[in-house]
Design a protein around this nucleic acid. Structure first.
Lengths: 161, 161
DNA sequence: ACTCATACGAAAATATCTTGCACTCAGCCC
DNA sequence: GGGCTGAGTGCAAGATATTTTCGTATGAGT
C-alpha cells in the first residue's frame, strides 16, 4: 500500500468531477470535460491527483447481492464487555476480516460496533453469529435487525457547492 | 431508467469477473481476460450482459468523506408510530431523497428503519434531525450512534465459489 | 444429420487515455 | 516595471483500450 493520502485543496472543478464520478465512473473524460468546461487531459490530471491524494479511494462496480445469491442484509449492533484498546483493536481486525461483514463501524452510544452483514440464508447468519459473537467472549450482547427492504444503498458522499 | 433486471444465470467466469470488478472496475478487459482465461471481447460481452440484467448496478468512484469535509458518519435507528403501508412508503421516499442519508434500510426488530448518515458537523446533524425526525409526526423515537472509526466500509458482496 | 442458438477468438475499426509541448496567468523577488 | 517560477491549461500526436465484425465451434433439440 502506498496511498499517500495527504490533504489537498479541492476547487469547484474537482468537486464537479467527483459528483460525476461517484455516480458513474465509466463516464469518458471527454464528456466530463464538456460538463465542467475543461479539456479531457485537464480532467484526467485532476482525477489522478485526487487518486494519489486518497480523495478517490477506489473505482468499483456495485453488485446486486440478491442476483448473486446473497439475499439477506442484516444489521447488527454489538456491545462488548471490555473496552481496552487491545480488545477493541482485536475486535476491529476480526470483524474486518470477515467477507460477510460488508461494513463495520466503531461507534459511541448504546452499542460499540455496528455491522452490516450480507449472507445467503438465515442459517448462514446463525452460523456466523456462533463464530463471531458467541465464539468471542468479549461480546456481551448483540442485536439483529433483518433488512426487509434496501431502500437506499450507496456510498455517495454529499458534496458541498 | 430502463434497467430490465430479470434474473440470469451466472457461471464461474461471470463470478470471477465480478470479483475483479467489485474490487477495481478500472481493470482493463484484457487483464481481466488473462485472469479468467477469456478473450477481452468475451469479458466485455459478459459484463454488458450483467449490466443489462442488473447484476452490475453501477460503476462508481468511492470518495473519502473526510477529505471532502463530510467528516462525521452516523447511524440512526428510527422507530415509527404507525406502520401502515402508506406511511412506511412515505417514510422510505423521504429518507431516500435526502443526500445526507447515504443508506436506508427498512428492517424488522426493535427499530423500523436504520440509516447511515454523512454530515460535515454535529450541528448539521442536529439540523437534520429536526427536519427528518422531529418534523415528522410519525417518528416515535430515534437513536443515534456516532461513528468513531469507519473500520470497514464497502458494498462488496461475498461471492460464492 | 441438420438446424438453431449461443458463445467464442482474431482482427479491424473506434474511442479513449496519456504524454509532450507551448502557452497563460499569478505570485514574487529584484 | 522586468523577469522569474510554478501551477495549470489546451492542443495534437502517440499509445492503449474498447467495441464491432466476422468466421467458427459447441451443444441442444428435432
Amino acid at each position: 500500500m502506498s496511498k499517500a493520502s495527504f490533504a489537498i485543496t479541492l476547487d469547484s472543478f474537482d468537486l464537479a468531477i467527483l459528483r460525476i464520478l461517484q455516480r458513474d465512473n465509466s463516464t469518458p473524460q471527454r464528456v466530463i470535460g464538456e460538463a465542467v468546461n475543461l479539456s479531457a487531459p485537464a480532467v484526467q490530471r485532476r482525477i489522478r491527483r485526487m487518486e494519489e491524494a486518497g480523495v478517490i479511494q477506489a473505482h468499483v462496480a456495485i453488485i446486486d447481492p440478491i442476483q448473486v445469491g446473497q439475499a439477506i442484509t442484516i444489521f447488527v449492533e454489538v456491545e462488548v464487555i471490555s473496552e481496552t484498546a487491545d480488545l477493541i483493536d482485536a475486535a476491529k481486525r476480526e470483524f474486518a476480516s470477515v467477507p460477510e461483514v460488508q461494513q463495520c463501524y466503531y461507534v459511541t452510544g448504546e452499542a460499540d460496533f455496528v455491522l452490516v452483514v450480507v449472507v445467503p440464508t438465515m442459517s448462514a447468519y446463525e452460523a456466523l453469529t456462533r463464530r463471531l459473537f458467541f465464539g468471542n467472549n468479549n461480546v456481551k450482547r448483540f442485536r439483529t435487525f433483518v433488512a426487509m427492504d434496501r431502500v437506499k444503498v450507496g456510498l455517495a458522499v454529499p458534496l458541498p457547492g
